[in-house]
Simulated scan of single mutants.
Amino acid sequence: MNRYVSPGVLKEVLQAFSSDTEVVDIHTILPVRAIGKTVKASHKYQQIACSIREIGIVEPPVVCRDKQRQGTYLLLDGHLRIEVLKELGETQVECLLALDDESFTYNKRISRLSAIQEQRMIAKAIERNVPKEKIAKALNINTRSLLRKAALVDGICDEVVALLKDKICPMATFDVLRKMLPIRQIEAAELLINANNYSVGYASAILAGTPQAQLVDTARPKRMKGMTAEALSRMESELAKLQQAINSIQDTYGQDHLYLTIARGYLAKLVGNPKIVKYLEKHHPEFLSEFKKIVEMTSTTGTD
């Protein structure tokens, strides 16, 4: 039974960070790791540098006071940002002040930006009349690539956009989906999600298995390197059977899972009854061993 705990005996919850940011001299910030030449040559570093040059610091670095040396700070998060500021000749930076030297910050488990989320961000900036050249520089890409990203969902139906909005899909995968009619795009997106595979190769395989009538350009025959027309036709048939099997499993999965859970609970009661166990041991020992295996299962998928 859970014991009631009075709120009065609980300790006060302390803040991990100061409520306000603080402007700190960069030379007083001590990094806890070195930034090598390889890191500085990376795309990520160059992208951060371009972003800071164009729009400044978006996310303040995280520092804490050095308890050993007064007037200095330990850098917990933001090493690349600080390094870029040093290269730009900046002397001060606005920082978030941590109240402990804990390096596990809110930034440690940040999610990567999906292609569709990035497209929406770019489209919103363009809609607000931000110059395309400025956006491209901030993202460290050329204007042509920016326009391609902005047009990512052109020709993609709304249902597919909703399905893939938080998935890390390559841009080329959307180019493949764009060749299909909307209903087939939805089926293809569901196949990608079920397989947890958003690669261009897998999307191209789905395209190869798509009937000609479900393509945008029905008059243009599909061509894939190293595959004959007969192989493409066979792939269409096999992919259709696979998709039918997946849909069938999805339709009955919830009901099947409920039945299995109920059956497992019933068998647990049987195995927990000494008289029944004694009877099974004497007359049907093979049943008893199987019943025990089912009861000991921690997952209805058959894996522990």
Rank of each mutant, 00 (worst) to 15 (best):
G78E: 05
I186F: 05
A151V: 06
A203T: 03
A205R: 13
M171D: 12
D217H: 12
D175L: 02
A115P: 03
L280A: 12
L113C: 12
L147E: 14
M235F: 06
N142K: 11
P221W: 07
V9A: 02
A123N: 13
M171S: 09
A49C: 07
A213N: 10
V32F: 00
L177A: 02
E159H: 03
G254E: 05
N2S: 14
A16M: 12
R220Y: 10
A205L: 14
K134S: 07
S237V: 08
P274R: 09
Y259N: 06
E54L: 00
E54H: 01
K11Q: 14
A189T: 07
L164H: 06
Y202R: 15
V9K: 12
T298L: 12
M297V: 02
G8P: 00
V13W: 06
Q214M: 13
A231K: 14
E190H: 02
K134Y: 03
V24E: 07
D25I: 00
L30F: 12
A263F: 14
T303I: 08
I82H: 03
T21Y: 12
N140C: 12
V161E: 14
I141W: 09
H79S: 07
T303D: 05
I168H: 04
N196M: 05
A98Q: 07
Y73T: 08
R3W: 08
R81P: 01
A203N: 05
E230A: 15
D251M: 00
Y45C: 00
F291Y: 13
H283W: 09
T261M: 11
L191Y: 08
T105G: 02
S111K: 15
N142Y: 04
V13T: 13
V5T: 14
C64H: 08
K269D: 12
V24N: 04
S51R: 09
L191T: 10
R184H: 09
R128G: 03
I55Q: 09
A203P: 04
S6T: 07
L80T: 10
L99R: 15
Q250E: 15
G89C: 06
D101G: 00
E296N: 15
T298S: 15
G155L: 08
E87M: 10
T21H: 09
G36S: 09
N194T: 11
R148Y: 02
S51Q: 13
T38H: 02
K241P: 00
M121W: 11
M224W: 04
V93S: 03
L10A: 06
V23R: 05
Q47C: 12
S114Q: 02
V13A: 11
K165E: 13
Q119E: 15
G265M: 07
I52H: 06
Y259I: 12
M224C: 06
R3K: 14
N196E: 14
I186K: 12
G56F: 04
E54Y: 01
T298F: 00
L97G: 08
G201E: 15
Y106F: 09
R81N: 06
L192E: 08
Q68H: 11
